[in-house]
Design a protein around this nucleic acid. Structure first.
Lengths: 224, 224
DNA sequence: CCTTATAATGACCGGTAGTCATATGTTGGT
DNA sequence: ACCAACATATGACTACCGGTCATTATAAGG
């Protein structure tokens, strides 16, 4: 049955075409300002057709997010392999976060602006999908931290899972700050770039095992 | 003209009654699931009347937020005065963040879930209001950090404003994590309480000037 | 007591997510 | 070549909501 295969492929292509259209529109106009009608028009389909491929507008959002996470995660795996010890691997991860956010500012904006609300009302099926994705990449961080604890490059007085969550949460929120934080940059006389680039220097002492001055030298890896 | 005064007072009372009603409903059902009709019903007014007192539903949100910020900030001023050096003042601030979030979980949830989107599309007038509020309380943090740098309790290799932003951003995001982060607690086998309570231990080395071990003793102030 | 200003109202408008009866291919058997 | 049966596509329709505005009710003051 080659026909069934072809249909399957076509269906997958359609799905991707819809995601592409939605992504493009969400990025340029914001999730909240794009209607399903507009997305349908962009892919040259009827509105109802979208609902054959995605359960809701929210689901479309999560399809975009998950495609991005996958892309981000796969590259992270490759990059982290080059770290020579646990601490370096974490540094590489942080660098990759920064690099990715700088290369994809629209994605980041969308995710931080609308993510909280949409994750809160996420439906069980999408929740499972997102959970699987994070289960796929979280272990990487844990391994790196455990490795760092063993090789003496990372502090050993905190649960590795906990340390991993702090690092990821902080990095994520620095590279893609809430609109409310963003607003206060100007008032503080701080540029977003400085805020991002100084993160390693700020955060290093809370991650590394080494005393302060060595830590400062160690974070030179962050400077280009 | 006592009548004019009375009218003014009554107007202020109405305004507050509306905020109260909105807060109650937003907290229990979520900003997105409460209609202006329902709020009007709760205060026993017509829907149109709400728009005599608030420009939009979003403005109602910011009225709630600003009332809370004021309350939070005023208490923060009092509490921080009791710190004996810059570092202690920052510790007190972090503790107060934690305490306030634990006492007002619904407020925190609402703010983190809907804040990003609403801050993004905030109208100029509300933006000015919120900006004034943060200008009122941000200096506190700066003074504390500068004091800490002078008295040797806080690291001196970072711009105080920058350090302040990191600390506030991190503390805020720990005490009121995004729904997406919240989801992963279970997967990581970490409790929210641990996550919050270990924050000082994690963060201290990045703030204090002292070498690691002294820092650890210093953060005993965090333990109850 | 009546005129005028102020406050309150809810029917109405425009716009949107999601549904569903209908229409339009597509396939596979005869 | 033809015809069921099945899959796919559609856009009119529904329900709902934020915000407006012509109209009504209330209060003030002369």
């Amino acid at each position: 049955m080659a026909a069934a295969d072809r249909k399957e492929r076509e269906k997958e292509q359609r799905k991707n075409a819809i995601i592409n259209a939605a992504e493009k529109l969400f990025f340029s106009n914001g999730f909240g300002n794009v209607s399903m009608e507009e997305i349908a028009k962009e892919v040259e389909l009827g509105k109802g057709t979208l609902y054959l491929y995605f359960k809701s507008k929210d689901s479309l959002f999560f399809a975009i997010i998950s495609r991005r996470w996958e892309e981000f995660g796969e590259t992270m795996i490759e990059k982290m392999n080059h770290g020579k010890n646990g601490f370096e691997k974490i540094q590489i991860m942080i660098k990759w976060f920064i690099e990715y956010s700088q290369k994809n500012p629209e994605y980041n904006d969308m995710a931080t602006t609308f993510g909280p609300q949409l994750f809160q009302r996420i439906d069980p099926e999408d929740a499972r999908m997102m959970m699987e994705l994070s289960m796929k990449y979280m272990p990487l961080v844990h391994y790196a931290i455990r490795e760092g604890i063993k090789d003496g490059s990372i502090r050993n007085d905190l649960d590795p899972a906990l340390l991993g969550m702090y690092i990821q949460m902080i990095t994520f929120n620095v590279v893609s700050p809430n609109p409310s934080i963003k607003n206060s940059f100007a008032a503080q006389g701080i540029s977003y770039d400085t805020y991002v680039e100084m993160l390693p220097k700020f955060l290093c002492p809370s991650i590394a095992r080494l005393p302060e001055k060595e830590c400062n030298s160690k974070d030179e890896i962050f400077q280009r």
